[in-house]
């Protein structure tokens, strides 16, 4: 905008092309989402009609009722919520604990532990998956939520890392002052450090929740009986069992998606924070 004679012709063309492409890509990215909702509201018989019907007319809202009856969706939702919320609690319990030891307690161990944490993040889960499965099987804990939840209470490298990055930036003077006043470290962590880390902890909670809401591999290995299925497995099994009934599948997929989109709109800043923190841009 520093030019004296207003935008030149070439910059006006650039601007037009830019706006055009923005709308073009917006349409491309939105269409599959529209396709999902459109199919979810469609009569099963009309899905395969040619030419393609773009607007579900009449809109069959009953699909959402049917899918709850046919798929036991309510149970899957309960299981998914349980197996996503418990890890959030686990991670929020363990990771600040460990990050505190790494950043706010002056001891030798911290310097040894942190590089090990970074190294463990490189080990693909496929390596530990087989031995862990045989361990849980020997303990008789397969076909339960324990293998999906318990490990989160012992910290997870990635979230410890996020937590540590933020805690490191907190001033040590506050903590030292509290120590001189005789506060124990547990109290310092819960009354001083926790409130200061609120935004980072919320970001972590959101990331953990989404990761577990999405997870297919864990439930695939450990949840064998259908009463324990999460949405990932339930959806996969439903598709397997029948010929694809696209309206019902799309209705179930919509139900599966909506909570995450709602979460996104409530906690948008934490999503965006989390992404740029993890990429090392912050």
């Amino acid at each position: 905008m520093k030019t004296k004679h207003g935008p030149s012709l070439s910059s006006r063309i650039t601007r037009f092309v830019g706006i055009f492409l923005l709308f073009f890509f917006a349409a491309v990215f939105a269409l599959p989402l529209y396709w999902m909702i459109r199919t979810a509201l469609m009569d099963d018989a009309l899905v395969f009609s040619i030419p393609v019907r773009w607007v579900p007319d009449p809109a069959v809202w009953e699909n959402f009722v049917t899918v709850f009856q046919r798929m036991d969706l309510a149970k899957y939702i309960r299981n998914t919520v349980f197996s996503s919320v418990m890890p959030v609690i686990g991670v929020l319990f363990s990771c600040p604990f460990i990050a505190y030891s790494l950043t706010k307690v002056p001891w030798k161990g911290g310097k040894i532990i942190f590089p090990i944490i970074l190294f463990t993040m490189m080990i693909p889960w496929q390596v530990t998956q087989i031995p862990m499965y045989s361990i849980w099987a020997k303990l008789g804990l397969t076909d339960s939520f324990v293998p999906l939840i318990l490990p989160t209470f012992f910290g997870s490298g990635y979230y410890i890392y996020l937590c540590r990055q933020y805690m490191k930036s907190l001033p040590n003077s506050v903590i030292e002052a509290a120590r001189i006043d005789g506060a124990g470290d547990l109290r310092i962590l819960y009354t001083i450090v926790y409130p200061m880390c609120k935004s980072t902890l919320t970001t972590i909670a959101v990331l953990v929740f989404i990761a577990h809401w999405n997870d297919l591999n864990g439930p695939l290995l450990y949840l064998q009986s259908s009463s324990k299925y999460t949405l990932s497995i339930g959806l996969q099994q439903f598709r397997k069992a029948d010929n694809p009934e696209w309206p019902l599948l799309m209705a179930a997929s919509t139900v599966f998606t909506v909570p995450l989109i709602a979460l996104f709109f409530f906690a948008q800043q934490y999503f965006l924070n989390g992404i740029s923190t993890t990429s090392g841009l912050k």
Partner: peptide, 24 residues
């Protein structure tokens, strides 16, 4: 104190990383 606060990770590291990786 450091050891106490790091203990969940140390236990987790042994049970969910070192042992399984060794077993693998």
């Amino acid at each position: 104190i450091g050891l106490m606060f790091a203990s969940p990770w140390i236990i987790g590291f042994l049970c969910f990383t070192i042992v399984p990786v060794g077993m693998a």
